[in-house]
């Protein structure tokens, strides 16, 4: 019975032979999940590419109506959260539990700052009637339809990104609780590592969303 029934632990589930094998599998699993995420957002990036190339001027005008300073500041906030996340992973590699918790809480807080700012921006759109739908109105251009397309894409893309942030927030909260319970050591910190990959990926999506949505031909204005 060499095969079966080693004691199941967190670091070594029943189906794996070695802890390294389990860690490799988890990491690969997360990378492949990120592949599916790339394709998921990819559909929207495609729609964006098609419509921006069809209506370049209208997209430029609409993009200029977004507040670029808030957008840039929020990008910095998100980059900060990525920085603290990577520090959390580093602390986990070194097995420093208190540092993990500290960095994770910082990451979570920065994530919520980002979402708060995002909510403020969305609210602005409500006030300005830039919400796609029957009440939509964008001042100063004849073609309302394509302008609405820009804002549909804006809301779809930032909304989906925010949803991913929320899910990330949930994961971080769970990690904080588990770390406090002492679940992670220098030898077993795969969940922290893998959650880090997810968080950085969500950051990368925003790295593309920011120039694509906020920075189209700013010089025109």
């Amino acid at each position: 019975m060499a095969n079966q029934a080693h004691e199941e632990t967190l670091a070594l589930r029943e189906q794996f032979d070695t802890e390294a094998q389990q860690k490799d599998a988890s990491t690969l699993g997360m990378w492949i999940f990120l592949v599916t995420e790339i394709m998921f957002f990819g559909g929207m990036f495609l729609a964006y590419t098609i419509y921006r190339s069809t209506y370049p001027e209208i997209f430029a005008v609409c993009s200029s109506s977004l507040n670029v300073y808030i957008g840039a500041a929020n990008t910095v906030v998100l980059l900060c959260s990525s920085f603290t996340m990577v520090l959390a992973v580093r602390s986990a590699q070194l097995g420093r539990q208190r540092a993990i918790v500290f960095n994770l809480i910082l990451t979570l807080a920065l994530g919520f700052v980002f979402l708060g700012v995002k909510a403020y921006e969305w609210n602005e759109k409500f006030v300005e009637h830039h919400i796609p739908g029957p009440g939509f109105h964008f001042e100063g251009i004849a073609q309302q339809g394509p302008a609405q397309l820009f804002f549909s894409l804006y809301f779809a893309m930032t909304g989906l990104h925010a949803l991913h942030m929320l899910i990330g927030g949930g994961i971080l909260t769970w990690l904080i609780i588990r770390t406090k319970q002492g679940a992670f050591t220098a030898e077993y910190m795969t969940p922290v590592d893998v959650a880090g990959l997810y968080w950085h990926f969500v950051d990368i999506i925003w790295i593309f969303l920011f120039p694509l949505l906020y920075l189209i031909d700013r010089h025109l204005k």
Partner: peptide, 28 residues
């Protein structure tokens, strides 16, 4: 995932008339 996002857009379009695929708004 591409099917998933497509269906998501169809749902948004049907629920909120956001116009991604609506020729009346310049969508294709």
């Amino acid at each position: 995932p591409v099917l998933a996002v497509t269906l998501l857009l169809v749902l948004c379009e049907r629920l909120f008339h956001i116009g991604i695929f609506d020729p009346a708004l310049g969508g294709d």
